[in-house]
Protein backbone atom coordinates (compact mmCIF):
# COMPACT_ATOMS: atom_id res chain seq x y z
CA UNK A 1 0.00 0.00 0.00
CA UNK A 2 1.54 3.24 -1.17
CA UNK A 3 2.00 6.20 1.09
CA UNK A 4 1.31 9.40 -0.80
CA UNK A 5 2.10 12.77 0.65
CA UNK A 6 -0.73 15.17 0.00
CA UNK A 7 0.75 18.67 -0.16
CA UNK A 8 -2.16 19.92 1.93
CA UNK A 9 -2.68 17.11 4.45
CA UNK A 10 0.62 15.27 4.71
CA UNK A 11 1.44 11.59 4.27
CA UNK A 12 -1.58 9.31 3.93
CA UNK A 13 -2.29 5.80 2.73
CA UNK A 14 -3.07 5.00 -0.87
CA UNK A 15 -6.68 4.13 -0.04
CA UNK A 16 -7.48 7.81 0.59
CA UNK A 17 -6.49 8.75 -2.94
CA UNK A 18 -7.41 8.27 -6.53
CA UNK A 19 -4.75 8.18 -9.22
CA UNK A 20 -5.77 10.31 -12.18
CA UNK A 21 -3.08 9.03 -14.53
CA UNK A 22 -0.53 10.87 -16.61
CA UNK A 23 -0.35 14.59 -15.96
CA UNK A 24 0.56 17.52 -18.25
CA UNK A 25 -1.56 16.33 -21.17
CA UNK A 26 -2.63 19.30 -23.27
CA UNK A 27 -6.27 19.29 -24.27
CA UNK A 28 -6.35 20.23 -27.95
CA UNK A 29 -8.95 22.56 -29.34
CA UNK A 30 -11.07 24.11 -30.62
CA UNK A 31 -12.75 20.89 -31.72
CA UNK A 32 -13.17 21.71 -35.37
CA UNK A 33 -9.42 22.34 -35.73
CA UNK A 34 -8.37 19.02 -34.19
CA UNK A 35 -7.82 15.99 -36.40
CA UNK A 36 -9.16 12.57 -35.41
CA UNK A 37 -5.59 11.36 -34.97
CA UNK A 38 -4.62 14.24 -32.74
CA UNK A 39 -7.77 13.81 -30.66
CA UNK A 40 -7.17 10.09 -30.22
CA UNK A 41 -3.63 10.80 -29.04
CA UNK A 42 -5.03 13.15 -26.43
CA UNK A 43 -7.67 10.67 -25.34
CA UNK A 44 -5.82 7.38 -25.34
CA UNK A 45 -2.11 7.45 -26.15
CA UNK A 46 0.11 7.58 -23.09
CA UNK A 47 3.82 7.62 -22.30
CA UNK A 48 3.36 4.75 -19.86
CA UNK A 49 7.02 4.80 -18.86
CA UNK A 50 8.81 2.10 -16.96
CA UNK A 51 10.47 4.50 -14.56
CA UNK A 52 9.55 8.02 -13.53
CA UNK A 53 5.94 8.85 -14.27
CA UNK A 54 4.47 12.31 -13.84
CA UNK A 55 0.94 11.75 -12.70
CA UNK A 56 -1.86 13.47 -10.89
CA UNK A 57 -3.59 12.28 -7.76
CA UNK A 58 -6.72 13.34 -5.96
CA UNK A 59 -6.88 13.30 -2.19
CA UNK A 60 -10.36 11.94 -2.48
CA UNK A 61 -11.12 11.08 1.13
CA UNK A 62 -9.28 14.10 2.47
CA UNK A 63 -9.03 17.65 1.25
CA UNK A 64 -10.44 16.85 -2.18
CA UNK A 65 -7.58 18.52 -4.00
CA UNK A 66 -5.54 17.41 -6.96
CA UNK A 67 -1.77 17.53 -7.05
CA UNK A 68 1.07 16.08 -9.08
CA UNK A 69 3.73 13.58 -8.17
CA UNK A 70 6.72 12.08 -9.91
CA UNK A 71 6.67 8.38 -9.11
CA UNK A 72 8.79 5.46 -10.20
CA UNK A 73 6.49 2.84 -11.71
CA UNK A 74 8.85 0.01 -10.82
CA UNK A 75 9.89 0.79 -7.25
CA UNK A 76 6.79 2.94 -6.62
CA UNK A 77 9.06 5.45 -4.93
CA UNK A 78 7.53 8.92 -4.93
CA UNK A 79 10.39 11.15 -5.97
CA UNK A 80 8.64 14.49 -5.76
CA UNK A 81 5.28 16.10 -5.11
CA UNK A 82 4.46 19.33 -6.88
CA UNK A 83 1.44 21.55 -7.43
CA UNK A 84 -1.16 20.66 -10.02
CA UNK A 85 -0.43 23.78 -12.08
CA UNK A 86 3.36 23.41 -12.14
CA UNK A 87 5.44 22.07 -14.98
CA UNK A 88 6.98 18.65 -14.55
CA UNK A 89 10.21 18.89 -12.59
CA UNK A 90 13.47 17.55 -13.93
CA UNK A 91 14.30 14.35 -12.13
CA UNK A 92 17.95 13.47 -11.91
CA UNK A 93 19.77 10.90 -9.85
CA UNK A 94 20.56 13.72 -7.48
CA UNK A 95 17.02 14.87 -6.83
CA UNK A 96 16.10 11.26 -6.18
Amino acid sequence: MLQITCPHCGPRSEIEFRCGGESHIQRPGPPEDVSDAKWSEYLFFRKNPKGIHFERWLHRFGCGRWFNIARDTVSHEVVQEYPIDSLAPTITEKTR
Binding site: R18, R27, R60, G64, R65, W66, D85
Partner: peptide, 13 residues
Amino acid sequence: AEQFEEWLQCEWT
Protein backbone atom coordinates in the same frame (compact mmCIF):
# COMPACT_ATOMS: atom_id res chain seq x y z
CA ALA B 1 -18.81 16.13 -8.10
CA GLU B 2 -15.33 14.67 -8.50
CA GLN B 3 -15.27 15.33 -12.24
CA PHE B 4 -16.29 18.95 -11.76
CA GLU B 5 -13.35 19.42 -9.44
CA GLU B 6 -10.97 17.56 -11.71
CA TRP B 7 -11.76 19.88 -14.62
CA LEU B 8 -11.63 22.96 -12.44
CA GLN B 9 -8.44 22.11 -10.62
CA CYS B 10 -6.52 20.44 -13.43
CA GLU B 11 -7.70 21.95 -16.72
CA TRP B 12 -9.65 25.18 -16.39
CA THR B 13 -7.69 26.70 -13.56
